[in-house]
Design a protein around this nucleic acid. Structure first.
Lengths: 346, 346
DNA sequence: TTGAAAGCGCTAACAC
DNA sequence: GTGTTAGCGCTTTCAA
């Protein structure tokens, strides 16, 4: 019965649209079983050389390509990993993604992308959707996981690695830098340069790196050095936000700034220039990120150099191990950063 | 027999790891057939209200989530589209991707990402891999499709839309701007401002937008206006490339530049400033792209504003129609651009 | 409105 | 080294 259908389809194909060649067709043409074709396709060694060659010839002639969806269903592995990212147009995430992508490619994984910046879908819906697609693993780079999302991750066996972020309880594997130490070192530089009225400019105040790290480090530092004027500016996400914020900064007599995004820092720098405020004489500024923008703006920004590409790459490498049921040497990798001095500080 | 296995698994689940609830389990618990559960899950109206509610209650209780891989195999639709992009850290592609992503989300498609910047895999291998995963459609935004890739696309029924690029023969649906007109308008501005020694600075000279559009428009323009000194600089991709290139530009006495990337333009601008060359008095420059960088660099860049987000969004919308077997009103959409004058030209 | 059953294209025991 | 066969979890006729 099936063979009738096959024959019919074959006849159709001659006149109609492009065929879908299946493993079944290859087996028939090569006069072997499906299992043997499967073995050849998957590089299994238990195939006689001549058989292999015969099968490969047919595969070539018929332009056979395995259906990865069927493979996925049968083998329970999709060779696909989910990537959860807030916004690809933010260079921070683009750089992380590149590291992830390169290692994923190396290990023959595809990437299923999910943005969560969008308000159309909640984060937990996005994650559930990804898991329903049977991804073998997930890399999470968003700012803060909500409770529902955590619950979902806990209910599944799919391994998860956080890249460039972490959860407060360290329940998930993660790759980060020491954000607190970086923050303190940067503040230390400003203080050493004689600045006393130090401010913190961040994008999302609720993000783990800010709330649980930079804010803490900043407050510690201020207390340690007996500095009373605490200035934390939140929601400064764009160049324009930075440019606008400068008025406030000036009104507050701030003379030293750590900005978490360098587009924001660039906005502040340009606004200062336009207002005749001299950098670094009257105002010093350090960016906690470092993309192209940091070297394009004049004066060039002193930055905390995060190894974003490496963070992504290491996270993906860790994920490949987890997907392979290997043990991790370290579930919470902390990569080194460097404070790169440039013209926006003395 | 099956039921034995089920019972065994259920017993296991109580002690062991997290379960995988299937449509079969839901059907049994709700005392209906798999078909009915399937209908409920897929919002089919042919289900009595009470039955639906009963099933939904069980789904909720069991935390049932459909296996999208199995759905894909059975229905031959994966609700996934492939995205082929050279480099996500290039803002041009990041912006395009955002438009694509938003519309994809709106239509409930996931995005399977494939970078082709990587030399590990050829473009055609990447594309074949995407198709093997049974994506319902593909958005292609790379620079130039090689022949093998075209062949693969032609052999498949999977619809393809090119975003921000096109093929010379217009065989594929595409969304672009009128690159030639934009180029000529920009050159016209430089000429009007008294610049005579006009140069073109591009990244990839083999890219369709350059080879078949900007180069052609440039050469036309030069001929039309009887300008003899043709200067085309290729492979200027980064800020540093731009900065380095300035020496050559100066040596060639160029006084007007169109640069296709604004990081490159920024490099040229900063190099000019460092060399004491005045912009726009001695050298005018227009960027054919416009990202944040164009407004951060001083003097701000005059740019050709491409509606990148819209190009991506329209391309994805077109793809949804093609995947739905709808007719397209127009297979080659051309979106408007604007020449936005700023401080890098008079 | 519901159910039974035949696939979707492949993998992986298991048998030979 | 190769074939047989029973699934993977779902959709989709077709019949009732």
């Amino acid at each position: 019965m099936i063979s009738y259908k096959r024959v019919f389809l074959q006849e159709c194909e001659k006149f109609m649209q492009k065929q879908e060649v299946t493993i079944y067709d290859v087996a028939r043409e090569a006069k072997v079983s499906m299992a043997t074709v499967s073995r050849v396709v998957n590089g299994n060694n238990n195939v006689r050389k001549e058989t292999r060659e015969k099968v490969l010839a047919v595969i070539d002639r018929l332009h056979y390509q395995p259906n990865a969806v069927a493979q996925g269903l049968a083998s329970k592995r999709t060779t696909t990993v989910g990537l959860i990212v807030p916004d690809l147009t933010n260079m921070h995430f683009a750089e992380l993604s590149k590291g992830i992508d390169d290692i994923a490619t190396m290990y023959k994984y595809n990437i299923l992308l999910s943005s969560v910046g969008n308000t159309l879908l909640n984060e937990d819906q996005v994650i559930q959707n990804l898991l329903n697609k049977q991804v073998d693993g997930v890399i999470y780079m968003s700012n803060l996981m909500n409770e529902k999302a955590q619950e979902i991750f806990n209910r599944t066996n799919t391994p998860v690695v956080l890249a460039g972020t972490a959860d407060a309880n360290q329940e998930f594997s993660s790759v980060t830098i020491d954000y607190k130490a970086a923050e303190k070192e940067a503040l230390g530089l400003l203080l050493k340069n004689g600045k006393k009225n130090l401010a913190l400019v961040v994008g999302d105040g609720k993000a783990y790196v800010n709330k649980d790290n930079r804010f803490v480090a900043y407050k510690d530092f201020m207390e340690e050095h007996n500095l009373k004027n605490v200035h934390i500016y939140e929601d400064a996400k764009t160049y324009e936000d930075g440019y606008e914020l400068f008025k406030q900064i000036k009104a507050d007599n701030v003379d030293g700034i750590i900005a978490t995004r360098d587009v924001t820092a660039a906005g502040i720098v340009n606004a200062a220039a336009d207002a005749g405020v001299k950098i670094p004489e009257d105002l010093e500024i350090i960016s906690a990120a470092s993309t192209n923008v940091a070297k394009i703006v004049r004066p060039q920004l002193t930055t905390v150099q995060q190894p974003l590409y490496d963070i992504g790459a290491v996270a993906m490498r860790m994920l490949t191990k987890l997907m392979n049921d290997e043990e991790l040497d370290d579930s919470h990798v902390i990569l080194p950063y460097t404070l790169k001095k440039s013209r926006s500080t003395k």
